[in-house]
Design a binder for these strands. Sequence first.
DNA 1: CTGGTGATCAGTAACCATTCCTGTTTCCGA
DNA 2: TCGGAAACAGGAATGGTTACTGATCACCAG
Lengths: 139, 139
Amino acid sequence: MLVPDVREKLRRSGYTLTSQRRAVLEALSKAKGHPSAEDVYLIVKRENPRVALGTVYQALSVLEEVGVVGSKHWAESPTRYDLNVEPHLDIRCIRCGEVSEVPGVALGGVEEIIRNNTPYRVTRATMVVEGLCPACTDS
Amino acid sequence: MLVPDVREKLRRSGYTLTSQRRAVLEALSKAKGHPSAEDVYLIVKRENPRVALGTVYQALSVLEEVGVVGSKHWAESPTRYDLNVEPHLDIRCIRCGEVSEVPGVALGGVEEIIRNNTPYRVTRATMVVEGLCPACTDS
DNA sequence: CTGGTGATCAGTAACCATTCCTGTTTCCGA
DNA sequence: TCGGAAACAGGAATGGTTACTGATCACCAG
Ligand SMILES: [Mn+2]
Ligand SMILES: [Mn+2]
Ligand SMILES: [Zn+2]
Ligand SMILES: [Zn+2]
């Protein structure tokens, strides 16, 4: 997502695009995988050593609130963050802990079914999948 | 699930059905909802005040391992446990925290699709849904 | 029975991801 | 330029969960 778009989404919720928030976004795109808040923090710190871990948590929370960042929660793992905010599938290896994306599985339809089958106002629906990655299966 | 069946499932994995594990199962069926480990602990303690919270965690973990208990993990909430181990939908209200079951949504098919679309050996797939319950929407 | 052996347990300390708090800095509009 | 609000750095606190340790229990061979 382009910087002006991010700035606009923040502005609509009354936030500004600060240098720390921009650094968090850059770290997320550098990480390319599904980093934890601490992973992001370590990357940000390489270029801006004075940033605090709490600031990274807060920036991620704001960026998620305005729809620029997504997050998923697995058991036995810190929260993982993602620039891909569309409904999609991520799987976590229960042995090595790596998270990767599973292409070709449409989840939008499932969300629609959920929305039509509950008296709740659904705000979020994520599929959390665990398994053994190919590398870990052969060992 | 009947006690002899539970005992057999435990035995197949080298465990025994101890009084504490039985008490945890009873607490789960009494709670009827989706209690946290601490909720279970408080119920167990009413009849057996000497039980430790750690024992409840360990019992839940063993019972889950042998397939008698299921668990789900939401953000901003402790892990919730459930006697319903079939693939099904649970939704958590982001305001009051209550978890309830959504009937009529088949998830088995989604799990099948996932299994056929990843090089992983899938061991677990849960749909985690959040929203506002009817009571919390009107207030 | 009875003694031995490994599993389980109670109690408590430690862990760790995340949030909270406080004083300081930065940002932005008037 | 100035004043107020938002954001931040640093560090302390929180809370769910796990790890550890010595005591107890269940089970079985003799
Ligand atoms: Mn992803
Ligand atoms: Mn359920
Ligand atoms: Zn792996
Ligand atoms: Zn509610």
